[in-house]
Design a protein around this nucleic acid. Sequence first.
DNA 1: CCATAAGCGAGACGGTACGTCTAGTCTTATC
DNA 2: GATAAGACTAGACGTACCGTCTCGCTTATGG
Lengths: 213, 213, 213, 213
Amino acid sequence: MTRGKPAPASASGTAPARAAAPRRRRASSDVEDAILAATLDILDEVGFADLTVEAVAARSGAAKTAVYRRWPSKVPLVVDALTRSRPDWPIPDTGDLRTDLVSLWQILDVPGHRWVERILPLVASYVGPGDGDLASLLRERYFEPRLQAIRVIVHRAAARGEIRPDADPELAFDLLFGPLAYRYVRGLPPDSRTVNQVVDLALEGLRPRREQG
Amino acid sequence: MTRGKPAPASASGTAPARAAAPRRRRASSDVEDAILAATLDILDEVGFADLTVEAVAARSGAAKTAVYRRWPSKVPLVVDALTRSRPDWPIPDTGDLRTDLVSLWQILDVPGHRWVERILPLVASYVGPGDGDLASLLRERYFEPRLQAIRVIVHRAAARGEIRPDADPELAFDLLFGPLAYRYVRGLPPDSRTVNQVVDLALEGLRPRREQG
Amino acid sequence: MTRGKPAPASASGTAPARAAAPRRRRASSDVEDAILAATLDILDEVGFADLTVEAVAARSGAAKTAVYRRWPSKVPLVVDALTRSRPDWPIPDTGDLRTDLVSLWQILDVPGHRWVERILPLVASYVGPGDGDLASLLRERYFEPRLQAIRVIVHRAAARGEIRPDADPELAFDLLFGPLAYRYVRGLPPDSRTVNQVVDLALEGLRPRREQG
Amino acid sequence: MTRGKPAPASASGTAPARAAAPRRRRASSDVEDAILAATLDILDEVGFADLTVEAVAARSGAAKTAVYRRWPSKVPLVVDALTRSRPDWPIPDTGDLRTDLVSLWQILDVPGHRWVERILPLVASYVGPGDGDLASLLRERYFEPRLQAIRVIVHRAAARGEIRPDADPELAFDLLFGPLAYRYVRGLPPDSRTVNQVVDLALEGLRPRREQG
DNA sequence: CCATAAGCGAGACGGTACGTCTAGTCTTATC
DNA sequence: GATAAGACTAGACGTACCGTCTCGCTTATGG
């Protein structure tokens, strides 16, 4: 038999009798925005592990169907929500490589940025090699903009003669973001002093100054 | 938690941009016929319980809207589909009451008739006392023609002196169709032998012959 | 990725530290009884078509899992609920066939009997030929006891010489229950007058009285 | 609503009547070993996200109870399984800091080592600040041995005069493991060339060669 | 004869319920 | 007393349809 509420069973089918129900329907992009906003809210409140699609739907006022129509499951939804907005942060250009790198991290790792730097690496670790499309999305929306910022910063520094011309920005990227992300993993979130130290080491290495003389 | 494909990232949605096929539109009666035909097809294939309006729309090539514009729900749709055609079957007139009744059943309960006698009683049981209009439709289109046939047959038999003049055709109707419909309910569809026996009993009762001598 | 609430994450696994939750668990047969009772309640309230497994679980205080562990879906559940109790009604023995048959129907079709005679034929019509086990259950629990009652009544009547000795009880069964069930289908529930008429006709047929003289 | 198989009609339930197999009982440590072994097997097969306690119990032949008696949930179980064995790997001592660091990573990140370096950082990211005991376990069993190895290596290098005496081993640790773990997160597992480059950069920084001349 | 309104296919919308899966708890009977 | 087995409550999962509602197009109709 039928699920849901049955029809009012009005006649055989001769009388149309539109009863003019008050239910409203939102535009598609409104629904999408509401879902993504609810996702970010819930991420903030309970974290990634305890976020459920059910709760996202309820919070956003959308039907579960509306969520699943757009995202096949939780991980792509969260990735999309966290990386939706175009990167609008500026690439630091202070004239000094060290200051640029410190500034970049400070710009990115802020509460107002929804803790993206904190949550997304965790989410990323759920993406296996089989999820090609999702991996691409992550690369394009998350890693690539950050990598690009490093490229610009490193390129400028090389132009200034601060570093050797053939320095690899991708390694610089890993060397900056890797240790700081690792600090979150270790349960010791990096403070500004740590960021400075990491940048220093990334820049200067462990060798004593005396060898350089 | 499985991963899965990411959203197509539908670009916020300014341009709907339906390009697609050159949509055709059919005449209203064509749509109606297609829907009813699809309903009967699907009834044959999966039965009443598993028939869905969604499938009817898909099969008929109509939009769900087009179905709901005409019928408020599944039950009225099925009733309409099953009883649409005017009763074009002949009322048997063999000169013998017993033969008339057996013939009547044989005329009605044929595969080509879409098993109406089998399915419709089930559908009818879904119609509650609150569904006045639908109940009326059922009565007019299904029960009344059959009852009328019995009336004619019984009247002729009474005129021939085969039965007592005050015999109630409505009871005769229940007494013929009831047991045979019940056989379907019991999972033991009546064969022609059973039909004969039912008619015999309906006609002669259980009394021993000796009382009649 | 875990579903549901995460563990309180107490320690590594050295400390069990059971927090002594107040949740209680019931014995298996209690759960079964609660589910069946809830099923009957809901059947009474909303009818078969609108009964949902979800509601049964909620009403009974059981988890949906507990329902599905025992019954694969709604139809078997309802059949089981409606036919669970052993038939404890007496087989009438008034010394008169006609009175026995009328009494039998009056005994069965009572409100206190949860309208079994009304609902179960509808439910039965959902059981297809493929549902062998369910059809068997129906036969054993519903049809067979009624058929057996007819057998006893008819046998006694034959012994008394009221009817001919070779009268077929199964046909008598169809001839009594069929028309009355059909009356429900037609939306005209039988009153006691109708029951009397059906029994009379089943017994005496439509033959004119003159043959009896 | 689909039909389906009826319930086995379990006879109201007076007699439980467990016949079954003659259950054997294993020693406690056997059970523990079996559970941990099953955990590692399943981790290899389906990864952390899709590992379930249910599957671990089934694979190990233990009851779920036996698992929950020892570990409160999946994360502690996995942490325990991955870090159970005492660190038996040697701390490299080649006389060269660079070679020591490369060797250390090669020793740790081997397939036979159950991909601990790959999986555990992911698992660790599930451990929140509230999970004090679990965080301690992680630190003691995973991070501390690796940190200690770095301490030894760095200390030796400082003694040899390879690096300045006040170099911070903890930063060296983050600078070595962070970027490599980050490579897994980015979906680009580090090959030996990458390990070399990371070590080089960690050691020499981005400074132009001219300063060294 | 052309404008306009009704009806069309398409399909997303908020929902309900489905039947499945796993979590973590608790009972039972066995050893 | 600890065990294996497994039923229990709880609740999220992802799917199927429900009946409603835009949305542009197409085609009759009526001014």
